[in-house]
Computed example of a mutant assay.
Amino acid sequence: MAVTPFAAWAVARLAGLERGALTTQLMTATPYAAAASLVPVLIAALARNRAATAVALAATTALGFAVVPRALASSDTATGRPLKVLTINLLFGRADTGAVLDLVRRLQPDVLSTQELTPGAVEELEAAGLKELLPYTYLLDEWSAGGSGLYAKYPLTPLRLFRPIGHQMPAARLDLPGGAPVEIADVHPYPPLGSQVHEWAAALDSFPATGPSGPVRILAGDFNASLDHAAMRRVLDRGYDDAADRAGQGLIPTWPANRGRIPPMITIDHVLVDKRVGVKEVSVHTVPGTDHRAVFASLTLPD
């Protein structure tokens, strides 16, 4: 009996069978299920039940193949123009302004993607000097969770890469020196709660594809999705890699942060990169005042 739940989980994960809000939310716990699936293997082996042992081993192997590679950095020797991307969900604009500015000064991103950007947060960030560091902006701020905005070192030209479903998701062309521009989208679909799960899936399915030709594209933000969601894997199938996954940092959780004794548990904030983009480094940072951790990616662009 101990084997059955993990075998079912493995089948659902591999086949993308999650349906409805509850199973979609549960799927974010797949890394923990993979670790826990070792217990039925031991129980079945001690009981000398060959059939149960075989099923338990198959489930553990399947879940392990889905999860373990995220902790293993892939060799990345790509060279080219550098691009640094930082993304952070500001939690209704409540993230500590000083901490955000300190992070920007320390990491020196070329572009900052913000979610839950309110008019109040825009004023506070500007007063603290953000526009001196990142003078070019494309902001769609709102007094709610729906606001988002891009800040950059270099000129931004608004684009309509896709039809946003859910929160504001500004996209822009970033005119970098020394080569072709990059297209970047600030991502923040609804969370898959209740009936919103359908809009969440539709939003992920609406994201534009990228490929070996045409402009390089990067999607950065709070996806409200992990790599264990079938809808998220469909995004990757359209020409993207998860930067943290490539850097061997794909199991570092980004939510919930700043919850006292409750540690971050799931990874739902991402920087997705065109497969032509090299990944040098990815790091995750806790910022006071918000329940999401910031994700930073140091990238190299194709010449």
Rank of each mutant, 00 (worst) to 15 (best):
A185S: 13
N224W: 00
W255D: 07
G248A: 02
P181V: 05
M265Q: 08
G147N: 04
S148I: 06
G248R: 01
L14P: 07
A29T: 13
A145N: 15
D269C: 06
V67Y: 06
L103M: 03
A33Y: 06
P82L: 08
S37I: 09
V3H: 07
P215N: 06
L236W: 04
L14V: 15
L125S: 03
R163L: 09
S195T: 13
A244H: 11
S144A: 13
P69V: 01
A59Q: 10
G20I: 04
D222E: 01
G16P: 00
T60Y: 05
N258C: 10
V282E: 06
F296R: 05
G166K: 03
G179N: 11
R276G: 02
Q196V: 05
A21H: 07
R261C: 12
N49G: 09
L150H: 07
H270F: 09
A56M: 06
P109Q: 07
Q25K: 11
G278C: 10
V41S: 05
A121T: 03
M232T: 13
A209T: 08
S74R: 15
L150V: 08
E126Y: 06
L219I: 06
A172G: 05
S144R: 06
A257E: 11
D269F: 02
D102L: 00
L42S: 02
L174Y: 04
I43C: 08
G147K: 04
F207N: 02
Y136P: 07
G178D: 13
G179W: 14
G120V: 01
S283E: 10
L272H: 08
A36W: 03
G98K: 08
G214R: 02
P189Y: 06
P191R: 04
T23S: 12
L140M: 13
L42H: 00
R106Y: 11
S37E: 07
A7S: 14
L91R: 15
L63S: 01
A202G: 05
D303N: 12
Y138P: 05
N224S: 07
A127Q: 13
P155I: 10
D228M: 01
G194L: 02
V85S: 05
A51H: 13
Q196R: 14
Y151F: 15
L140G: 09
T118A: 01
L140D: 14
H198K: 14
D141T: 14
A185Q: 05
W9L: 05
T118M: 00
V85D: 05
A152V: 11
E126S: 13
V187N: 01
A59P: 10
A99C: 10
Y136M: 08
L130Q: 03
R81S: 10
T157F: 09
A59Y: 11
H188D: 06
P82N: 07
G278T: 10
T87V: 02
G166E: 06
T30F: 03
D245R: 15
L130A: 04
P181S: 04
A15N: 13
R105S: 14
F65S: 15
K280H: 09
G16R: 03
L91G: 07
P5M: 02
I184F: 09
G250M: 03
S283N: 05
K275M: 05
M169K: 00
